[in-house]
């Protein structure tokens, strides 16, 4: 019994003395730093996610305070934090809030698998060992590497086999984008208005695209020809929308034979928010093309 007490007494005494010593030296060697850093740290959300590229909010606050970096790198705080940081520093920022969007609609039914994959159930392993699980080489495998890295619980692989982003929770930190071996998630501004092509298939052979995916872009360029604003162009085999010109006229959405196009503010973004989840819009069946 006494040995336990002695052990306890020695440990506690030692810890106490060391604690006192450290406290004393902390004051003795105190470094006064720019009070602006403390003000910046108060504004930052404190998630310590590292999306800004610094080890944590403290390190980022110091970097911003010393003007080593820009105040718009905090994706968790978004534009609100960026603006208040800019106010503290007396500068102007043009940050916009972004969210992750999956540039693929290849659910299990629409984009068939090329065989039964029995390996390690991560997208990275599937890509490395089997070259992917889908017939489409650009499609989503749906093992949820993005889901596992998300620090905000904002992305989940649904029963349809592709991830769905919860835009109420998504902060646009970009971790899922880095984790996706297919590179088919991208950051898109929250308040974007216009059409968006949700496909990453760059195969130029129409028959190959048709065989591998029901909602794949097979480069017919109907969208490019029909766009009244000439806002769509083909880039690396995929249609790209110029948002300075797009008027959300819905032409490309209606004309696209495989429903690659969606109106971001009507069809994509509301789906990932609480309002959109309450009443999901009825989905149009992919049109048959011969």
């Amino acid at each position: 019994m006494s040995i336990i007490l002695i052990t306890l007494a020695v440990s506690v005494l030692l810890a106490f003395v060391l604690g006192l010593g450290l406290g004393f030296f902390r004051e003795k060697f105190r470094v006064d730093r720019d009070p602006i850093i403390d003000r910046i740290r108060e504004v930052l959300p404190g998630a310590n996610c590292g999306a800004c590229g610094y080890p944590g909010c403290d390190a980022y606050a110091e970097a911003v305070g010393l003007e080593e970096t820009t105040p718009d790198r905090c994706t968790v705080g978004g534009s609100a934090v960026a603006r208040s940081l800019a106010d503290i520093l007396g500068i102007v920022v043009s940050a916009e809030d972004k969210v992750a969007v999956l540039m693929c609609q290849g659910t299990r039914e629409r984009a068939p698998e090329k065989g039964r994959y029995v390996g390690i159930r991560t997208c990275a392993a599937a890509k490395l060992s089997a070259g992917g699980t889908k017939l489409c080489a650009w499609g989503c495998y749906g093992f949820g590497d993005c889901e596992r890295v998300c620090p905000f619980d904002a992305i989940h692989v649904g029963p349809d086999g592709i991830p769905h982003v919860d835009y109420d929770k998504c902060t646009g930190c970009g971790k899922c984008i880095a984790a996706c071996p297919q590179k088919i998630l991208s950051l898109i501004p929250r308040n974007r208005v216009g059409a968006i092509a949700l496909c990453s298939n760059r195969n130029v052979i129409k028959a190959m695209v048709r065989k591998t995916c029901a909602v794949g872009c097979f480069k017919c360029e109907i969208c490019v020809r029909n766009c009244p604003e000439k806002a769509i162009r083909m880039e690396d085999g995929l249609p790209v929308v110029d948002y300075a010109l797009c008027t959300s006229c819905n032409t490309c959405v209606e004309k696209c034979p495989t429903n690659v196009f969606k109106l971001y503010e009507r069809d994509v973004f509301p789906l990932g928010t609480a309002a959109g989840k309450a009443a999901p819009p009825a989905e149009k069946e992919p049109a048959e093309v011969t």
């Binding site: 040995i3 052990t7 060391l18 010593g21 450290l22 902390r26 470094v31």
Partner: peptide, 30 residues
């Protein structure tokens, strides 16, 4: 003297951690 040789891992880690903190404070200043 107290017969507490078995505490060495615990105590040594405590000492090292405190010393590192001290070095950190000092370097930050100096």
């Amino acid at each position: 003297p107290l017969g507490l040789e078995f505490l060495q891992i615990l105590i040594f880690i405590l000492i090292i951690a405190s010393l590192v903190q001290l070095v950190e404070f000092y370097l930050k200043k100096a």
